[in-house]
Design a protein around this nucleic acid. Structure first.
Lengths: 214, 214
DNA sequence: CACTGTGAATTGATTCACAGCT
DNA sequence: AGCTGTGAATCAATTCACAGTG
């Protein structure tokens, strides 16, 4: 084992990945922490430190080889070959996420979709067909899926999360406004209502209210 | 002014708001930091501290009045009357967010939607009609809109953000994979590709790769 | 007595500053 | 000379522990 890696650093790796993809696309072979800083809005020290957590990828006096760094980060994230993801809950948001992913799959492929509504089962989105949740465990196991996106209504989220865990899922991206408790599974919450509501604070009206001027 | 309030605390306020709504719905009149902790997955100390940043809302030996606390948090966030939001970019994700918001508007209402695609202009979603971006500044000004959701393609994001700022928008929820630079505007990024890619790290395959076992 | 509110201690993340390669 | 890699310092957030109060 090595020194512990900040969670925040891991969440920045995909940012570097995206910028590196663009640089490689443009034929740029070498970059620097300062260049990456300009393109990401982060500081150059932070970028160097983030990368150094995983080893020394750069060359002093020169910078970072874009292709090499890209490969290294993909390896760290476990994206050397595309990761398969299951999505459960093909409502508005689930459908949008599937279409979005089918349009631009960035090393992540939604390869299975489930919905409990019988009217949705059999519905096709590109090559993807919505399946009955009955088949969930079997499909997830046979495809070796380790990640899931959860876009079901709040009251079903905990149960579905447990079923996913049983089927072998190790990480869940949870869009339901519920705190999931699933031992051994990493859960990342994305809550759009929270994002919108907390945004309101940064509006002048709210700040004024806090300092007691309204 | 008062002691500085952690950004993290502000992002937790909507969580408290949701739990309080549920408690009030169930007729519960008093709660405690320990009870809220159980319902949110946070620690009771953290909850007390978060609330104390904004003043003393509780009663020692008793707890917090659910209705009062709910009102106070709404006031802090500037949600005493529903906040109006403009959404720009009515693609898959934008449409899903509008439908989601129309279905369950939590003190936040998307009251204007814009898309540059002439085929989308005039399209109706509930009472909402997609408008030409030409009208954006005028509509945002006349409605007094201060918040916007940005779901346009990456290459248009910076320009649209600047137009929003000119129109008087003070806070943007940005779904585009671009670092926006708009002085004086608070930008909160939500990047679904980053969420998915970083999720992959928490899968056993990736962790093993980092520690060099693969 | 039970629960809040809060300084003090701790833990975690970022920034600084510079030594070390190429 | 130029840029990385990193210990030390700073800054931010969380947790601890307990005094204060209805």
């Amino acid at each position: 084992m090595q020194k512990k890696i900040p969670e925040a650093a891991i969440r920045r790796l995909p940012v570097y990945l995206r910028v590196l993809d663009e640089l490689i696309e443009d034929g740029v072979e070498v970059t620097s922490s300062a260049d990456l800083a300009g393109r990401t809005g982060l500081s150059s020290e932070q970028i160097r430190k983030d990368l150094a957590y995983f080893g020394a990828f750069g060359t002093r006096g020169v910078g970072y080889d874009t292709c090499l760094l890209n490969r290294r980060i993909k390896k760290i994230l476990g994206l050397t070959h595309p990761a398969k993801v299951a999505l459960v809950g093909v409502g508005n948001l689930g459908t949008a996420l599937i279409r979005y992913n089918l349009a631009q799959p960035k090393d992540i492929h939604i390869t299975a979709a489930f919905d409990a509504d019988p009217r949705k089962v059999g519905f096709r989105l590109g090559e993807l067909e919505v399946q009955d949740p009955e088949r969930m465990e079997q499909v997830i196991r046979s495809q070796g899926i380790k990640m899931a996106v959860l876009t079901v209504p709040a009251q079903e989220a905990q149960l579905v999360a447990e079923q996913l865990a049983v089927a072998g899922v190790e990480a869940i991206l949870n869009f339901s406004p519920v705190k999931l408790k699933v031992p051994g599974v990493y859960v990342q919450d994305v809550d759009l209502t929270i994002e919108l509501q907390s945004l309101a604070y940064y509006t002048n009206g709210a700040e004024a209210a806090v300092s007691g001027k309204v």
